[in-house]
């Protein structure tokens, strides 16, 4: 087997906040009727919960389910588990009008941590971070590319974007988090 490598191999920069490429992460796109009982059962079978609109909820084994749009969810799990979780979801939804795809290798995940982590993203995203609650999934843009952001811990934000733009996102995060660039 070839070794799985993340987009930037865990590159990290320390400024007034620490920005890190979070390494390989299992991500699965699920498109289905989110109101259907079958969807809820399929998620429960993998230890996942169904999030409400714009929520990200924790399930078992450190897995998360994020709400991406009225018919789309993003499942986040361990990289090694992703193929099995995707297969499990696809199996239980095979009679439904649904799509399950393992997108782990098509995405990159970053963490921005520190007491002033919000300010790194305030400069890049048209989002009022003062009103971004814990457990809220916010899809937006980071400078010129699409991204999804949520609070993944105290003083820590996570950002996912397409792998093809990982270098660009690391660049803007690094510049935005440089020492002396704090907003307040």
């Amino acid at each position: 087997m070839s070794e799985a490598v993340s987009a930037l191999k865990g590159e990290s920069h320390v400024g007034f906040a620490t920005v890190t490429e979070a390494g390989v992460t299992g991500m699965i796109t699920l498109r289905a009727d989110l109101a259907a009982t079958a969807t809820r059962i399929a998620l429960a079978g993998q230890g996942l919960k169904l999030p409400g609109a714009r929520e990200i909820v924790a399930g078992d084994k450190g897995r998360f389910t994020g709400w991406m749009s009225p018919d789309e969810l993003l499942v986040i799990c361990a990289y090694e588990d992703a193929p099995a979780v995707a297969a499990g979801l696809a199996k239980s939804l095979h009679l439904e009008h649904a799509l399950v795809t393992n997108v782990s290798d098509a995405r990159a995940r970053f963490t921005i941590s520190g007491a002033k982590a919000d300010q790194v993203l305030t400069k890049l995203c048209p989002v009022d971070f003062a009103t971004l609650k814990a457990g809220e999934m916010r899809r937006t843009r980071a400078a010129q590319v699409a991204a999804a952001i949520w609070r993944s811990g105290p003083e820590e934000l996570s950002l996912v974007c397409f792998r093809s733009v990982a270098g660009y996102v690391m660049g803007i995060l690094e510049v935005s988090s440089r020492q002396g660039g704090e907003l307040f």
């Binding site: 609109a53 714009r54 749009s69 009225p70 048209p126 916010r138 899809r139 937006t140 843009r141």
Partner: peptide, 10 residues
């Protein structure tokens, strides 16, 4: 559709 208030560039 998602209830979020966004500005023009999004």
């Amino acid at each position: 559709c998602c209830g979020v208030t966004v500005e023009e560039t999004e």
